[in-house]
Design a protein around this nucleic acid. Structure first.
Lengths: 149, 149
DNA sequence: TGTTGTTAGTTACATTCTCAACTATTATCT
DNA sequence: AGATAATAGTTGAGAATGTAACTAACAACA
C-alpha cells in the first residue's frame, strides 16, 4: 500500500503550509513594520472593522481563534486605544468591543493593503484556476477535523 | 478602488492559513500523541528517512526550515536516539545525520500515516481539481517573497 | 604565517502559542 | 433560595518560534 516514493512535497498539508507562509509574508511585514501588530491582533481588528462591534466570544466563533489569543489581542488593541470595551448591561460577563476612530483608520489602511496583496496574488492565476483554488480551500477548511487516522 | 465589502474570507493568505491548519490538525495530533513530536522534528525525520543521511545544512536548504529550528529538532531527535550524528572527517564543521533503526521505524510509521491522511484529503476533490490545487500551491510557494506593496 | 571572510551549527533572549486553571457572572434544576 | 453547571473572559506556566549574537572550523589572500 505505502508507496515508498511518497515525498513530503506530495503531502497536501505541507504544500498548504508552505503556500500559506509564502503568501502571508509580505502583508505580515507590512502590518508588523507599520503598526507593530501581531497576526491575531490584525485579525481581531479586521473582524471589528468589517462586521462592527461585537463581543470577544463572537470573534472567537467567527474566526476560530482561541479565546486566550483573542483576549490578549484585545488587550493589546485596547492599550493602543484602537478599540474600547463596554460592558453589556444585560449580561455583564460580556464586553462589547468597538473600534475607536484611530482603530478604524488603521483598519481601513490594512484592509486596503490586504486587497492590494490579494490582487497581486490573484495575478498568478487564471480566473478558473482561482475559482477552483478558493473552492478547494473552503472545502478543506470546512471539513475541519475529519480525516480518520 | 477599495471595495468596502472585501471580507477576510476573501483574503487568499487567510484562506490558505485556515486550510493549512485544518488539514494539518489530524496528522499533527497523531505524531504528537504517539511520539511527542514537534512539526519541525517530524519534518527533519522525514527528510532523513526519505533522502538518506545528510547534514543539517542540507536539510535547511531542501526544506527551507531555519537552521536554529533544525538544530533544535536534531538535538531532540538525537536525545531520543532516533538519529546519530557523525562528524565529517573532511570538514569537521559538518555532521552527517543518520536515522537509527528506531528512527527508521518511526519514519515508516509516520510516512504511512501521512499517506493515509493525504489520501483522505484527496478524496475531497476530483482529480482535475486536485491537479489545479497542487499547481496553484506550488506557484504561490515558488513566488516566495514577491508581492510588491 | 597571519588576517579577514565565510560557513556549520549552537546558544541566549524576547515574543508568541498552548493548555490548564482561575474569577466572575448567568442559567438550571431541585 | 441554594446547589450545580455552564459561559465570558483572564492569567500563568511551559513549549515553540524568531532574531541575533556567538563558537568553531575552513578558505583565501596578503
Amino acid at each position: 500500500m505505502a508507496k515508498s516514493d511518497f515525498d513530503i512535497g506530495d503531502f497536501l498539508p505541507y504544500a498548504l503550509n508552505r503556500a500559506a507562509e509564502a503568501s502571508s509574508r509580505g502583508f505580515q511585514r507590512y502590518y508588523k513594520a507599520k503598526y507593530g501588530m501581531t497576526r491575531t491582533e490584525w485579525r481581531v481588528l479586521f473582524h471589528l472593522g468589517r462586521h462592527g462591534a461585537m463581543t470577544a466570544s463572537a470573534i472567537c466563533r467567527k474566526s476560530d481563534i482561541h479565546k486566550t489569543k483573542v483576549s490578549r489581542a484585545v488587550a493589546a488593541l485596547d492599550k493602543r486605544r484602537l478599540l474600547v470595551r463596554r460592558p453589556v448591561e444585560a449580561d455583564r460577563r460580556h464586553e462589547t468591543l468597538t473600534l475607536t476612530n484611530a482603530g478604524q483608520t488603521v483598519y481601513r489602511d490594512l484592509a486596503q493593503a490586504a486587497q492590494r496583496f490579494d490582487a497581486d496574488l490573484a495575478d498568478l492565476f487564471a480566473p478558473e484556476e482561482q475559482a477552483v483554488l478558493r473552492r478547494c480551500l473552503a472545502r478543506i477548511a470546512a471539513q475541519g477535523d475529519g480525516a480518520s487516522g
